[in-house]
Design a protein around this nucleic acid. Structure first.
Length: 396
RNA sequence: GGGGGAGUUCCGGAGCGGUCAAACGGGGCGCCCUGUAAAGGCGCUGGCUCAGCCUUCGCAGGUUCGAAUCCUGCCUCCCCCA
């Protein structure tokens, strides 16, 4: 029996989802009239959460706002296995301390979206760290054939790529998480579909009511192509400064904008709008969300100043430089290395390519030393986005 | 247990005794263009006291005037047969 209110709730919650399985199950669950336990498993390898995570967290938040409980599982144990979705063959094994630290930052950041009062955080080592005879009892219930249904596995088999036994175990263990926390619903990206569904089998094997599952679209990174992820360097972190956030968002390809709008904002992209304007709005709204309206305005103003008009930002960092000897010459590669994290060789190349400016004028190729007086108080710029005001400290 | 193959610069992947800091592609970076988008053009992409020098081609030895390239041992990985 599902009352119409539950059906309405379900419709709202399913709005952003790609799939909800089994069909109609969520509406039934919502009709039970008790808070549902909604599970999300996270990997403690990436300590920062980014907009890709936000898509999922938003959905969880919607569940919380409807009165349900989120169970956040820190996969400290499964992290030792490595989910085959990331084709990364080997992951570095994290130490306990690293996992602690990552879990903590992740949690803190997740609470920028989630309601801590309706969130339960658990680590799967709590139940997965079991004696091997117990593990065997768990694993015995599943067949390899069942696991090979996963497309990733079958693809690798036909491509003659290796699959480790451990990887095969991953879905079983992460499915067991659902048993342990008695999940009613599990959420994940579309790439997690197999794992989510497999959780149902594991629950069933343990005499539990199988969860329903919800898959969500995957947000592309700032390159617009690959999924957003920290290791790809194409992410926008929720703790990025307003300037960084605004800048990164302005750099996404036009084609990706529609998805960013759909997955992260309450409004849709108006296809008739000028792309530049639409992108500004996207950037502005997201900065507002993770910082505030003033920060968004400031970030946009700075963006216009620095990148559109090519002017210098007001809040330049200061680089204090020592002049070299009584001649007062400053060795540019050394300065660039110290203040911009380049190697001196890189710095030389950059100079030769006209990528280094002093006071807006490109340093001529091959010119490695400049008189201190030409540099003091001037703005030293590398490429388009790195600059600092130089102060030459007394040459003695 | 048997047989075969591979480990190269951020990634993929050439090179198989000197002309190799190592082709080519991807990525990244710089300049031009522009809406800091995309596409495109040109260039760079080990380090340094930079017309030269130093350290790199899984690890350790060895052969040689000279090795990423040959030999020996070790480590790791993959494939096929059982």
């Amino acid at each position: 029996m599902t009352d119409s209110a539950a059906v309405g709730d379900a419709r709202r919650l399913l709005e952003g989802a790609i799939e909800a399985l089994p069909e109609g199950r969520l509406a039934e669950q919502l009709g039970l009239g008790r808070p549902l336990r909604v599970k999300l498993g996270i990997d403690p390898t990436a300590p920062d959460i980014h907009l890709g995570h936000v898509v999922v967290l938003d959905e969880l938040r919607a569940f919380q706002d409807a009165g349900h409980l989120v169970v956040l599982i820190v996969g400290d144990y499964t992290a030792r296995i490595g989910d085959p979705s990331g084709r990364s063959a080997e992951r570095p094994v994290l130490t306990e301390a690293e996992i602690d630290a990552n879990a903590k930052t992740f949690q803190d950041q997740a609470f920028r979206v989630l309601d801590p009062g309706r969130t339960e955080v658990r680590r799967n080592s709590e139940w997965l760290s079991m004696p091997s005879d117990e593990l065997f009892r768990l694993v015995r219930r599943f067949t390899v054939a069942r696991l090979l249904e996963r497309e990733e596995f079958s693809r690798r088999i036909s491509a003659a790529e290796p699959i480790s036994v451990l990887e095969l175990l991953y879905p079983v263990l992460q499915g067991y998480d659902s048993v342990a926390v008695e999940a009613d619903v599990e959420i994940g990206g579309t790439d997690q579909k197999f794992n989510l569904l497999f959780g149902r089998d594991v629950q069933e094997a343990f005499g539990e009511e199988p969860q329903s599952i919800l898959t969500l679209p995957i947000l592309p990174g700032t390159d617009g192509v690959r999924r957003m992820s920290k290791s790809q360097g194409n992410y926008v972190g929720v703790t990025d400064t307003p300037e960084e956030m605004f800048g990164k968002l302005m750099s996404i390809p036009d084609d990706a904008m529609e998805q960013y709008y759909r997955l992260l904002l309450p409004v849709r992209l108006d296809p008739k709008r000028h792309p530049g304007e639409a992108k500004r709005e996207l950037a502005r709204r997201l900065v507002e969300r993770f910082h505030d309206a003033d920060a968004a305005l400031a970030a946009e103003a700075r963006f216009d100043q620095v990148h559109v008009r090519g002017e210098l930002p007001d809040d330049l960092e200061e680089a204090v430089v020592e002049a070299d000897g009584p001649s007062g010459a400053v060795h540019l590669p050394a300065v660039l290395a110290e203040h911009f994290g380049l190697s001196r060789s890189e710095a030389r190349r950059l100079i030769d390519q006209g990528g280094v400016r002093i006071g807006g004028r490109a340093v001529e190729p091959g010119r490695l030393d400049v008189p201190a007086t030409d540099l003091d108080g001037e703005v030293l710029q590398v490429g388009k986005r790195r600059h600092a005001r130089v102060r030459v400290a007394g040459e003695g």
